[in-house]
Simulated scan of single mutants.
Amino acid sequence: MHRLTVVIVLALGLVACASAPKDAPPLPRAENVDLERFMGDWYVIAHVPLPPEDEAFNAVERYALCADGRVETVFRYRDGGFEEKLKISRPTGYPGVEGDPAEWGMSFIWPFRAEFIIAWLDADYDSTIVARTRRDYAWLMHRAPEMPTEQKVEALARLEAMGYAPEDVRMVPQRWPEADGLAAPGPVSLPQCED
């Protein structure tokens, strides 16, 4: 079993136990999520990271919607610097928990599914926040490696209003093209939907 996958699963703990911390406001859900529009590349601008990605550089999440409704995912980043080793994980998303396309189960190891909530999505599908009820992890993502400062400040304020502590949020360094000449988002092929 891939070591990164094991660490992610251990870090998420018991995925069934997704209770909110005391005094945390209810976690919002983006309304009317169009999954087809949500697909494609998302650059991680800031995050409350999982342990394996706590020193991520050039982090990019890529989604592909399969005919059966699954979302095949490729998450790639450089571990510890722009020239460091490329890390890749390929979880599968299962959108539509309780009929809500903003709530997914994300599976790193079958049959376990971690909570994955599209808590905010701008009208143009250019920026999003993915969060968890426990407020243990979150990702602010944008369609380009750089997010305009005003939008970034507003999005970080949204994250704080959701119950995340500002001191837990790490800005993810993004620099493209990469030093080895790779164009964004790098050499990772699109996720493949298998029958």
Rank of each mutant, 00 (worst) to 15 (best):
R37W: 08
R37C: 11
R37G: 05
G40S: 03
I45R: 02
I45E: 07
H47K: 13
H47L: 10
V48W: 10
P52K: 00
P52E: 06
E53Y: 06
E53K: 02
D54L: 12
D54C: 12
N58F: 11
A59M: 15
E61P: 02
L65T: 04
C66A: 03
A67D: 14
G69P: 02
V71Y: 00
T73H: 10
V74D: 08
F75I: 15
F75V: 15
Y77I: 02
R78L: 02
D79V: 01
G80H: 13
F82Y: 14
E83S: 12
E83R: 07
E83P: 00
E84I: 00
I88V: 15
G93N: 04
Y94V: 04
D100P: 01
P101E: 12
E103P: 00
W104D: 02
S107T: 07
F108T: 04
P111V: 06
P111L: 02
P111A: 11
P111Q: 08
F112H: 09
F112G: 01
I117V: 15
A119T: 08
W120R: 02
W120F: 13
D122N: 13
A123V: 11
D124F: 01
D124E: 13
D126E: 13
D126S: 12
S127P: 00
T128M: 11
A131T: 11
R135L: 04
Y137Q: 05
W139H: 00
L140A: 10
L140P: 05
H142R: 04
R143W: 04
A144R: 14
P145V: 08
E146Q: 14
E146P: 00
E146R: 11
P148K: 00
E150N: 02
E154M: 07
A155H: 12
A157Y: 03
R158Y: 11
L159K: 07
E160A: 13
E160N: 05
A161M: 13
G163E: 10
